[in-house]
């Protein structure tokens, strides 16, 4: 099981780093967001309204990390659909491997890609702060090894949860067109109904209620507490992490069950 899963995961990752253009596009997006969108929207809010972030750009940069992880996971579904199209999925189904290796390897690969992408965005945001005329992420906490591990844990959990969802969806949905439709249906609401880009306090009540249970909110809330001193979270840090853990466990289990059903011979 482990050997096959690793081999399939490595295949996915090879595809990814060999498609240089994909990585390039992935980096362009946050640069555009941080560089243009952030400048055009100079929200002047006090740190208290921003989860303790010193300025809006720092606040939004953290949101960008999480959103990047979300988007990367979405594209994991695309490769599943391609594999079905080219018969590779059938080849795997004909191989003497545990069927579970197919979704698990995808989820792992998508998770790793998403975490690496998010970390790249983090790096960009940190560099942007030091470029005159641009704004980025200013860290105000005593950021130590524990905080770094905390950030990593949050990203891993968030990415695991989302990749499980999208891998299961892609294995169930047979065509690219439908998958695109579903992705579009999910991604914008997920992104805006969260604390990723705007503080939840300024949202109408019903949206706040949705945003508060969105895994993206938990992730950014936790990361902001690690990055900004004096950050008062929506939830305590441990609640954020436990919440994300619960989300990822439940979604992975559901994802694998759904995937196995989709892979069954008819």
């Amino acid at each position: 099981m482990i050997r096959e899963t690793t081999a399939l995961m490595v295949r996915e990752l090879k595809h990814w780093y060999r498609a240089k253009i994909q990585i390039f596009m992935l980096l362009i997006q946050p640069i555009v967001w941080l560089g243009l969108f952030g400048q055009a929207l100079p929200l002047q809010l006090p740190p208290a309204a921003l989860n303790g972030a010193p300025d809006y750009m720092s606040y939004m940069s953290v949101g960008m990390l999480a959103v990047t992880a979300l988007f990367t996971c979405m594209f994991a579904g695309m490769s599943v659909v391609w594999d079905r199209r080219f018969g590779f999925l059938n080849k795997l189904r004909a191989a003497p491997i545990p069927r579970g290796a197919i979704p698990v390897s995808r989820i792992l690969a998508a998770m790793i890609r998403a975490v690496i992408s998010a970390l790249m965005v983090l790096l960009i945001a940190l560099i942007f702060t030091h470029i005159p005329g641009l704004a980025g992420l200013t860290v105000t906490s005593n950021f130590d090894v524990m905080s770094a591990l905390g950030m990593l844990l949050i990203l891993v959990l968030l990415a695991t949860a989302f990749s499980a969802v999208f891998v299961a969806i892609a294995l169930t949905i047979k065509t690219q067109e439908t998958l695109f439709a579903v992705i579009n249906l999910l991604n914008l609401p997920l992104m805006f109904a969260s604390a990723a880009l705007f503080p939840v306090n300024s949202m109408p009540d019903w949206l706040q209620a949705v945003a508060k249970v969105n895994p993206l909110t938990l992730a950014v809330d936790g990361m902001r507490q690690l990055l900004f001193s004096g950050s008062v979270g929506i939830y305590p840090l441990w609640v954020d992490i436990l919440g994300l853990l619960a989300f990822s466990v439940v979604l992975v289990v559901i994802g694998i069950v759904v995937a196995m059903r989709a892979l069954k011979e008819k």
């Binding site: 050997r3 096959e4 081999a7 399939l8 295949r11 090879k14 595809h15 060999r18 498609a19 080219f86 018969g87 590779f88 059938n90 080849k91 795997l92 004909a94 191989a95 003497p96 491997i97």
Partner: peptide, 22 residues
């Protein structure tokens, strides 16, 4: 199979290794 299912983005040898592992 009828379709070409070898992986375009791997080398021939990598394709074979993956198959061997599976």
């Amino acid at each position: 199979p009828q379709e070409m299912t070898v992986d375009d983005d791997l080398t021939g040898r990598e394709n074979m290794l993956l198959q061997a592992t599976l």
